[in-house]
Structure formats: C-alpha cells, structure tokens
Nucleic acid binder design. Sequence first.
DNA 1: ACCGTGCATGCAATCGTTTGTAGCAGATCG
DNA 2: CGATCTGCTACAAACGATTGCATGCACGGT
Lengths: 342, 342
Amino acid sequence: MTKQVTLRDVAREAGVHISTASRALNPETRSMVNEDTVDRVLAMADRLGYRPHPLAQGLRKNRTMSVGMVIPDIENPLFGPLIAGAEQVLGGEGYSLLITNTDINEGQTSEVVRALVERRVDGMILATASRSDDVIVDLIESGIHMVLVNRSTEGVPVPAILGDDLTGIGLAVDHLSSLGHERIGHVAGPQHLSTGLGRHQAFLTRMQSLGLAVDPSAVEESTWYQVDPGYKAAQILLERRPDLTAIVAANDLIALGCYRAVRESGREVGTDVSITGYNDIPLLDLMQPPMTSVRVPYRQMGVEAANTLLPMMTSGSSLDRPVSIRLTPTLSIRESTAPPRS
Amino acid sequence: MTKQVTLRDVAREAGVHISTASRALNPETRSMVNEDTVDRVLAMADRLGYRPHPLAQGLRKNRTMSVGMVIPDIENPLFGPLIAGAEQVLGGEGYSLLITNTDINEGQTSEVVRALVERRVDGMILATASRSDDVIVDLIESGIHMVLVNRSTEGVPVPAILGDDLTGIGLAVDHLSSLGHERIGHVAGPQHLSTGLGRHQAFLTRMQSLGLAVDPSAVEESTWYQVDPGYKAAQILLERRPDLTAIVAANDLIALGCYRAVRESGREVGTDVSITGYNDIPLLDLMQPPMTSVRVPYRQMGVEAANTLLPMMTSGSSLDRPVSIRLTPTLSIRESTAPPRS
DNA sequence: ACCGTGCATGCAATCGTTTGTAGCAGATCG
DNA sequence: CGATCTGCTACAAACGATTGCATGCACGGT
C-alpha cells in the first residue's frame, strides 16, 4: 500500500500553503490564484499523482458522490440494463452506484433503504416502489433526492421514469386484434404494483375502445412476476374461459407460465392460443415458439433516471414540480402470436 | 432534511464529554467507561436517533466500509446471483457494494478499477480477470485486498473463487458418453479467459480418459460467451465434422448458438445432435428442447468471495498464502441430450 | 499526612479537505 | 503623500468522529 499523497504534500512541494493548493486544484476557485502558482501546483499534483481523498472531501462538502439503487430482484434480467444505463451516466459524473437487492422480500426494503440513508448517499434510485409505499413517504420526509424507476407510487411528489404501459399493452392488443382475435384474456401482474394495475387497466381500456368484450372472467391475477405464479393463474384462466384464443400477459415470465398452461391444456402456443409477453427480456427469441413481447427501453430508463437525479442532487432545489417521464415501448413480433384457428 | 444528530449532541445531552460518548458507543472501548454513564449515553443516543457519520468515521479509521465489484457484463444473468450472494454477506457486516460494469469492454476495466481505488474501497471482488491481466498485477502492487471470482489469473497470489470446470465438463462428457455418444465436439470459450481454457482442457482430458477420440478438428473456439459467436463457431464445427453426434458448449449462450447451427444444418437438437450448456442460467428449462447444462452455484460463489474477502480486510494480514476455492457443479439433465440416433 | 494505584473522564491532536477572513504587498487615486 | 483598492496568499476554523495522554479523584496502605 503505497503511502497516500495528500494535499499537504502537494502544497509543501509546490511551496505554497495548503489552502492555495486547494484553490488551484479546484476549477471553481482557480481564478483566485496567480496563474504561475496554479501551473506549479497542477504540475506538482500531477507529478506526485495526487488524488483528493473522497471521504475528506465528502465530510467537508457534505456530499458522498454516491447514489443508492434499490432493486427488488437482481436476478431478474430486466434490471441488468437498468443498472448499466444508470451507472454509465452517474459514473461519468463521478458518482458511484451502491446497489442493493431486496430479494423480492418487500419487508426488507425499509432496512436496505435505511442503510443507504445512513451512508449518506446523495440520492436514490428506487425500483421497488409499490402503489402505496411507506418507505417512500418516509424518504420524502427525510428530504433525500430520489427518482422512481419502472414502478411508481401514487400521489407522491417524486419523479418517476416509467414505461408507457398504456401504449405498450395497446400495441399488444392491437396486434392480436389485427390478427383477428376477439376473445382475448389477460393474466395480470400483482395489482398492488403500479405496473400490474396499469397494464390491467390499459388492457381493459384498449379492449373497450376496440369494441371487444371485456368480461371480468377473462382476467386473472398472478401473485408475482414469475413463471410459476403465472402458470397457476393461466391454468385457472384457461379452465374458466377455454374459448379464449389469445392471452396478454403482464410480463414475460408470466407469459412463459402461460406457455406451460396452454400446453398442458393440450393446445399449441401460437397456432391455437396466441400469447404476448411484456419487457422483451433476452432469450425470448430462442423460446419455442419465439415470444412476441413488448419491448421496454430499460437501458434508456436507467439513463433517464440518472439524468433526472443529477440536477436534483446538485441544485438541491428539486421543488419545481417533479417531472415524470414515460418511455415509449415497441412491439417485438415473433411466433407466439398468429391468426386464430378459425 | 432533518438536522443531523452528531456525537456532540449526544454527549452534550448526556452531560459527558464527546470522547466519553464515543467510547461508550463503541463496544470495544465500552469497558473503559462507567456502567451508569454507558447506559445514559446509550439511552440518549437512542432517543436522539444518533447514527455515526460514516465519512467521518472512515476518514479517521481509514476505512470506507465499501467493497468494489467489477462485472464484465451485468446483463449476463449469471452475475445476478453472484452479486446477490456477495451483497448478502457484505451487507450483513456493514459493507456496501459498489458495483461497476465494464460492458464487456476489457479496456475499460482499468479505468473502472482506478475509480474504485480512488474511492478508497476496502476491498475488491473482480469478475473480469483474464488469464494474463495487467490490471490485477497493478492492483496487487497497490496492496488492495481482493478476490477473484469465476475467472482467475495465472501466477498471481490472489485468492480466487471458481467453479470446478474439470468436474463440470467431466459431468457433461460422462453423461454424453453414458448415453452412447462417441464422436463428441466442443465449442470452446475465449482461450484468453481461464474458463475458456480450463473447460477446453477439461474436455480433452475427460475424453482421453474415456478412451474417446480427441481430434483437434472436433474443437472450435467461440470468440465470446454469447449466442452469435457461438452460432458461428458451431457452424464451422458442424461443417467440418458433420459426423459429430454431440457438442459440449463452453457456456449456455454458446450452446444456444449451437442450437441454431444444428437446426440450420437440417437436424434436430436432442434427437440428432445432443448439446450441453454450462452455467444453467434461468429459463433454460423452457427452451425447446430444454437444455441440459452444468449448474454452477453462483450465489454461493458470491457468498464465498465475500467470506474470503472479509478477514483480509479486517486483519489486513492476507499474507498467509491465498486460498482458492473451487465449487462443485452439478448436472441439470434435460432434453437437449439423448442417445445418438444409431 | 503521604503516596502509589486504578478508575473514570476530559483534553487535544488527528484524519484530508474546503472556505471565510485577514494580511500584505504593489498599484491607483485624490 | 497618505488612503484606498486590488490581487494574491496564508491562517485557522470547520466537517464528525477516534484515540493517546493527562488529569482528577477516591481509596487503601503505611
């Protein structure tokens, strides 16, 4: 461990006072210092390989240059691009990302968040928001700068970067409708999450505007965004409504559960029953049949979240009404959707 | 932003000197302080909701309680469990994980690592090691505590937590052999990575010990651990050796590339040509056909990495010859492997 | 009465920066 | 020529904690 080069060392070697060295090094205050002196200090700092100590800096300036990111389930492939996008932007601005995973355990969120607050992160990106979320309310009171991604909470003044589920589900329903489907069902996500509810409502809305039947019996809720719960919900749905020719699933994993349920009912995905997923996670093109899915630009979502958070952390104001962004999804059409067998 | 409660406040309210409060709060030094005083301080700290300022603490104790983790490609599902495992253990000990992603760009690694070093992380977990890796050599000189995961570097005294590729590939080859396959090929991973080389050698070794032919023509290297490069390598391999009845792929994505190449050659995966993957990433059981793959306990790998790193960071010694751990894989048998069509 | 002993606490330096203020030149002006 | 200004630099006080050392006190033994 080579000895640390401190500002003191630079100042001593350059023959100036430590405070002068500090000002010379900082572009903001550099103008207060004589040019020659600046050059001397800069040269010496470079020669010694001086790096400011982030802890000392943070202590003095009351900023840690780190932001916390809370992920509900890091094993879900959806979050990779989200993290990568945020990290790219924040890293470029000198921030580090503290990533924490709550392992789906929603109760754990408050502990994890508290740990981040104690670390004095300058801001937070939350991907764990539920529609009514105490943790977020607490966080608002504590005045921490934060941005929600992917999911939102109702009635709180916090910016959120979301996918446009209305459009996304619309794309899926329109696609199925244009293929000739009329009896379309929906396996919904958890209704306590904004995505679950939003996609559900979007489904109803779009069906209605197309003049298609929207009997409540055509919708079943999956308890979680995973394959097994999706499978169980699809089983129930298919038993109740064997006449359905297509299913819009609230996410890809649920859709994969639907695949299984359809097969078990003795039918084929695509030819007998069309299925659409949501998120377009990797490898869907390699499933059998390749899955039609709504593609959400998650990497961009991470980027936008970071770009929204940055000015909040530096200007500190953030009071000018929070701006929420909805990213437009597209449809990746593959072979899990086809005209209904007439 | 409610005003910060500092040690000063606690001390003042408890009617003791700040240093006494400090000692009372710290279990290590608590014995120096009168029991009654300890109680008073603790009660007051609790009442005020005092939390030590990590930056101040870190500055003084020269520790940041943070660990850097460098991931080559965070979108690869393999790293989710790895991160989750490490975070679980480190978080429990009060450390935060700073995760950075090099986006496969190997050149970016040194910048990313330098950023972590400047942040004064207490230790690092590297998942980006190549067989000959300058970054790691530099890091050793700087005396940073670190652990390699998944991949290793040759001839450096750094602990590494790896999968046992010899056993893993052995399981795959044995399985194929026991099904009756004799003409088995290998689509290798990049040979500049320890995993690529290791699995390649393991393949040759196991084939030989089973008395099976190991002509170099039965091996083709994929330039990277992804579907497309795997597909291209498999194409070449199958064209050169159309007689192969089975392929051992160096990882799952490469194996999926093999799926495609096999199909394009007009044959069926499983029935005509058996394929094994490596890592057993999620959703493989839903591929068509479901893929036989070697399962590596990545979550445990993250846990072990953290457990190895922790004592290094606290005792600081770490000179007692680095211990490397190899985790034993298992085989998930599915339908991409079957007896050869005779 | 004196001194050593030991416990509990206070004092002050320190970690590496940043930043408000004071000081000290030389230049400018009335 | 003295007063004011300007441009640069140095001083010192923070930020919030930890920790070696000194101090104060009560107590027991002689």
